[in-house]
């Protein structure tokens, strides 16, 4: 019996000693991000810090459809594009009216391409996209290589596209204004190519332009690019033409207004910036 006690005691001591032996500690290495070492990446870094958005300019074939072609943006144009187009014509118009608006709504990724995205085969053959929005997370910017601050039509096209794609983002976050989809119900292009409809026909059916006849989402977004590129008086004159137009205008305008954004003020601001931009 005594022998058992000695054995038990010895084993217990041994187990205690074994159980207390320490493993080698895992050394702590703090995570360090490489800070940008050039102005372009610094500008992108700053935007990410401020707006939680990633500007991607490095070419990745997977961002466009297999049936489409697009070229990467010229590196030397990325920085001026960010400074003069993204900041001045896209971010500032909203944040000027509503503090932190873009911090809370900016797409998570904005991907830059040098040209438009040209579809050469498949269902959208001969179609050229000047911008794309994927859900609420990603917007594709095209046409960067044509950057020219002295070309008002290019500039207007750029900010029209940006605000159009951003409308898709807001559409995904909030949904379109209640009742919007019903205004022109049954009047969309349906199986017909939207290009078959004239501007006058599109307007008579309550669309800003015929591209909006594609579907409700494009209908909504085309109203936005239309209003932000057209002076208020002209917009009011256009929408007074019929009830479809005036209803949609009210819905779209109020949708933004409820979020603190007056689209007419935004248009006036854009026009002022456009008039005063310097290379």
């Amino acid at each position: 019996m005594k022998m058992y006690k000695v054995i038990f005691f010895s084993v217990s001591l041994f187990l205690l000693a074994v159980s207390c032996s320490k493993e080698e500690p895992i050394s702590y290495e703090p995570y360090e991000t490489d800070l940008p070492d050039n102005p372009t990446d610094q500008a992108i870094y700053d935007l990410r810090q401020e707006y939680q958005t990633k500007i991607i300019y490095r070419y990745d074939r997977r961002y466009v459809s297999t049936s489409a072609f697009a070229v990467p943006p010229r590196y030397d144009l990325v920085l001026p594009y960010i400074e003069n187009v993204l900041r001045k014509l896209f971010i500032a118009p909203y944040d000027r009216q509503k503090t932190d608006f873009m911090r809370e709504h900016m797409p998570i990724e904005m991907i830059m391409f040098g040209t438009s995205i040209n579809y050469v085969e498949g269902g959208e053959s001969n179609f050229s996209a000047s911008g794309l929005a994927y859900g609420l997370s990603r917007v594709i910017i095209t046409g960067v290589n044509a950057y020219d601050l002295n070309n008002p039509s290019w500039l207007r096209g750029q900010y029209a596209t940006l605000h159009h794609e951003f409308a898709h983002v807001l559409d995904k976050i909030y949904g379109r204004p209640t009742g919007f989809d019903n205004v022109s119900k049954g009047l969309y292009a349906g199986g017909t190519a939207y290009g078959a409809f004239s501007q006058a026909e599109a307007r008579s059916r309550g669309f800003w332009r015929n591209y909006g006849m594609l579907n409700e989402s494009e209908d909504f977004a085309t109203w936005i690019d239309g209003i932000v590129t057209t002076p208020k008086e002209e917009v009011l004159q256009i929408v007074s033409a019929n009830n479809y137009l005036s209803q949609k205008y009210q819905l779209v305008y109020n949708f933004y207004l409820e979020k603190g954004i007056d689209l007419h003020e935004l248009q006036a601001y854009l026009q002022n910036i456009l008039d005063n931009l310097e290379d």
């Binding site: 400074e83 900041r87 001045k88 500032a92 000027r96």
Partner: peptide, 15 residues
């Protein structure tokens, strides 16, 4: 450290 502030316009127009 120097006891100063920096300000930047809040609308993101530039940095």
């Amino acid at each position: 450290s120097p006891g100063t502030f920096e300000v930047v316009r809040s609308d993101g127009f530039d940095d």
